[in-house]
Nucleic acid binder design. Sequence first.
RNA 1: GGCCUCGUAGCUCAGUUGGUUAGAGCGUCGGCCUGUCACGCCGAAGGUCACGGGUUCAAGUCCCGCCGAGGUCGCCA
Length: 589
Amino acid sequence: MLRTHTCGELRKPAVGQTVTVCGWVDTRRDYGGLLFIDLRDRYGKTQIVFDASEGANALALASTLRSEDVISVTGRVVARSDKDVNPKLSTGEIDVRAADLTILNKSKPVPFEPGTTNIPNEEMRLEYRFLDLRRPRLQELVQFRHKFTKLVRDYFDEHGFLDVETPMLGRSSPEGARDYLVPSRVHPGSFYALPQSPQIYKQILMVAGYDRYMQIARCFRDEDLRADRQPEFTQIDVEMAFVRREDIIRTIDGLVQVMMRQLKGKEIQLPLPQLTHREAMEKYGSDKPDLRFGMEIQDLAGEVANCGFGVFKNVLGSGGRVRGVCAAGAAPKYSRKDIDGLTEFVKEYKAQGLAFFRVTDTGLDSPIAKFFNPDEQQAIKAKFQANAGDLIFIVADKPKVTSAALGALRSRLGRELQLFNPEDVHVAWVLDFPLFNWNEEENRWDAEHHPFCDPVPEDVHFFETDPGQIRAQSYDMVVNGYEAASGSVRIHDPVVQQKVFDLLGISAEQAEERFSFLLQALRYGAPPHAGIALGLDRWVMLLTGCDNIRDVIAFPKTQRAMDLLSGAPSEVDAKQLRDLHIKIDEAAK
RNA sequence: GGCCUCGUAGCUCAGUUGGUUAGAGCGUCGGCCUGUCACGCCGAAGGUCACGGGUUCAAGUCCCGCCGAGGUCGCCA
């Protein structure tokens, strides 16, 4: 070892010892005849003192030190006098008086210093990720992530789960997200796909008798990025055999309880709250509602059915809905111009417009208030249990549009009006998603989750009559408005599986071609099984209060899926392409 | 692919209704300093105002395009 101690561990009891510490020069304070260095490593900072009496050569060399030089210092640990103690440092009661200094690696002047309070833009941070990762905040996040994954592995180990690795080079399937493809050298024209998730493999593990499986699995999806989406991300992947939905929920409830206890110091009550997909869409306009605050959506069909406002009546007459939210006390906080901004905001979600009322003692105040008689105004007020000073927003549109627009508006208002404590972590289940979604563009049914998701048994008769009514035995976990986990009971009955494929328009031949290895396995003694996957990056983000997952990934990619540190993706040699039998369409560049 | 925000010194930013030689803090370089801890003081260097075009007597500022970073809609079984 080049060191006897780290920069975070020396305390008063070490006084008198001669130690060697290594690390990065964090700050220096040079007095000519006396020089201080704060030496930093991931354990903390220790102040090194150089003066002529202890080591004249070391002092001379120390005066050449600059930020981020890597050095080794040998010296005596001494106690600081009372007036010199630095209460901001855990090591602030001692100094190391340097007798010897070795510069292990001189640093070029850094584009930014890890200790800076002016955090550079992300482009700079990603290009110099090795400097960014020295920042205390990122060091904290990296260490938190380690604790998190260790806790997860321990939890599942204690519950009898086996950690099994599944292939990264797998078979492409056209469903779902775009695949990242890997060309085969040995099979010209053929490609592997990187896994979007280990879904099929973990089901096969159930068939193979490994009835409790978990894996911290890297997944790849070639879709556009978001604050909470990276092209490669990590799932806590879980599957269990001989279980019902409730067993998965209980298992994950337990995990969340342990996580909150050990990582946040919070005791939470189990079972975690559960709501149905229908309730979530009705009350919050979203299948992943932020439940840290109320402001539930209300349906105003009854209140405005006979009003004089043509827009509302027309919408109701043509199968649409009139729904709204009430922001308590918000009327004085939103000017007409602010509300115009909100109107533009809901238009992004396809809403035609945004009606609003300022609630007064006597009724409602708004450019459109005149279309509502006093009784109707009172009825609207009563529906929201509104008080003077509240601000009511109403969207009249196609049912899906009212949900999307009001759901987004509710989230925005909740944030702007600070209706929740940003420290809160609210975890809940959303159950009974529809099994299928009608795809309007392509005029066909899509699987909401995936084609192996088991329907609720009493809904199976809807296959012939009204597939949109079929509920899935699914469960999503929502945390603060994010989808933090998603799973389902899987189909283990070939007859049901065939019905699903039929409805999705996947012929027996196609199914056989794409999923033969799973379907094959299901014919050789498949136990009832169910599983779930938790988004590890998102969980770490939420538990640490970050607002994007790049900060909890050591080497993330930009919105255009570039790694600015390495320069990936990059062009490759002509020889590599030849080996892979690939020709580039130069026109496409 | 659409919409929105941003891009000025190595970094973080300021820069007025378009108007003289584009500024500050930190960092860098030189000097002084024996108890600081974001040390202090004196001095200096450092700019393709992302890039390209346009309007104008005059553009960091206005317009168009484009590149990059971020947010978001679509997309993400």
